[in-house]
Design a protein around this nucleic acid. Structure first.
Length: 437
DNA sequence: TCTGGGGTCCTAGGACCC
DNA sequence: TCTGGGGTCCTAGGACCC
């Protein structure tokens, strides 16, 4: 009884208004900053291995191109309609994101960077008289400083700010800013499909549709017990938020709780040796991130899978979880354990599509728990620092463990990648004066 | 031929203990 | 022949997010 009460969502407070700042078609917008002639033209950006379409300009959306469409299925359609296609360029998007977030943080103190292209802002209630005007101001400043267009939604809760943002983006009359904090949100919720609500995904949406719940407004009207039973506490939290009761606080970023690294191969890999190279490569990448956030890993998972869409061979997926005797950030040690795990789950004769590693049970590096018989770690720490320094300066595989391979033929190529305009000197864009100025 | 990658949180159920 | 019940901890898997 007591504990179930504790798990009931608790309203945080209603002293604040939340704003959600969301970059429009973010990856496409990043590409357009450096290719202005693509303004007003259809553009898409592909996922990591040129696999799926993960970002679309408005013009591409208007052509009916769906999010997540496999590229190979859409390639002909895209070229027929003159759609410009980019491989994803994460150094560029990461840097542009940093610029947008820095600009927002200069304007407001309470900012949560929620994802690469979204930030929540928390504003004291009634601190600002004209929210839409304030939203337009933020919009103009971000645009001017970074070249990225954003939309802004205001609401008394994060969930309502999300919905406000959805309208700001979808309906031209709002011109990128929509405020649900001072008016009744109900008419908007009636026009918002339940599956578009933040926290209601595919599964829940299907379940709710079958119960006749199609809009956010329908959901809001159901009683707490009914929702709790079907959607768990998280669903109930969402519904409270729709009702204007804030249950999800602003969160300042801390170190992450797990770090993953994985990628699909460029071709179907059969040999254990290539899998070992890939595994060692991904462990190396994860360990760099681990040290960057000054954490140690207490647990390592390695997994392996064949192509789940294959019609010629059965699907095989397996993983191995390894608890480390003592938390570590030592690449060599992590590689050694990962390769032991890999050999356990490797089955000869199969063609593999993907492998990956996850580091978890992370703890701060300053509070290292030494085991009684451990060797002194100091030299290993220094070695890792030197490694990171060299690779940061000269490129991420300048020095690496031999087992990670050198040619890495199994890696996927990305054929349509734009230059790293803002993070590599060699890729810096060149501007020429035209004389007509 | 070709279908992404990196995260978080919650729950059910098993293991274990008394 | 009889074979409890309740609490806690941990983990795998599911659902969701971008």
């Amino acid at each position: 009884m007591g504990s179930s009460n504790l798990r009931h969502p608790q309203p945080v407070n209603n002293k604040y208004i939340f704003a959600l700042v969301d970059c429009n078609n973010f990856y496409v917008s990043c590409e357009r900053v450096f290719a202005p002639k693509l303004q007003g033209r259809p553009v898409v950006v592909l996922s990591n291995n040129d696999g799926c379409i993960i970002a679309r300009s408005n013009e591409a959306k208007a052509l009916g191109i769906a999010m997540g469409t496999p590229f190979f299925k859409a390639a002909r359609f895209l070229s027929r309609h003159g759609v410009t296609v980019f491989s994803s360029n994460y150094p560029l998007y990461g840097d542009m994101s940093w610029r947008v977030m820095t600009t927002i943080k200069k304007l407001e103190p309470d900012v949560e960077v929620y994802s690469i292209d979204e930030a929540f802002i928390r504003l004291p209630h009634s601190a600002i008289l004209d929210l839409p005007e304030y939203g337009r101001r933020i919009r103009n400043i971000v645009r001017q400083h970074t070249g990225i267009p954003v939309s802004i939604g205001f609401g008394p809760t994060k969930t309502l700010a999300k919905i406000a943002n959805r309208f700001a983006k979808k309906e031209d009359k709002y011109q990128g800013v929509c405020d649900l904090s001072s008016t009744s949100a109900q008419p908007f919720l009636g026009r918002c499909p339940v599956g578009d609500v933040w926290g209601i995904g595919r599964q829940s949406s299907d379940k709710l549709q079958k119960q006749g719940i199609t809009s956010a407004l329908d959901l809001l009207k159901r009683d707490d017990g009914w929702i709790r039973r079907r959607l768990t506490v998280r669903g109930l939290r969402t519904v409270m938020e729709l009702r204007g009761i804030s249950c999800i606080e602003l969160e300042k970023a801390g170190p992450s709780k797990s770090i993953a690294s994985s990628k699909s191969f460029g071709y179907q890999v059969k040999s254990l040796n290539e899998l070992r190279e890939a595994t060692a490569t991904y462990v190396t990448q994860a360990a760099v991130k681990l040290r960057l956030q000054r954490s140690l890993a207490g647990c390592l998972q390695i997994y392996l899978r064949t192509n789940r869409f294959s019609r010629t061979q059965p699907y095989y997926a397996a993983g191995e979880t390894i608890k480390l005797p003592e938390a570590t950030a030592d690449t060599a040690l992590l590689i050694k354990l990962a390769l032991q795990g890999l050999e356990k789950i490797y089955r000869p004769g199969l063609r593999y599509q993907k492998t990956g590693v996850v580091l978890s049970r992370l703890s701060p590096a300053q509070r290292r728990q030494l085991s009684l018989f451990a060797d002194p770690q100091k030299n290993r720490d220094k070695l890792m620092s030197a490694l990171d320094l060299i690779n940061a300066r000269w490129g991420r595989f300048t020095i690496q463990h031999g087992v990670a391979g050198f040619a890495k033929p199994w890696q996927h190529r990305q054929d349509r990648k734009s230059p790293a305009y803002t993070t590599q000197w060699a890729d810096l864009p060149i501007v020429r004066a035209s004389g007509q100025l």
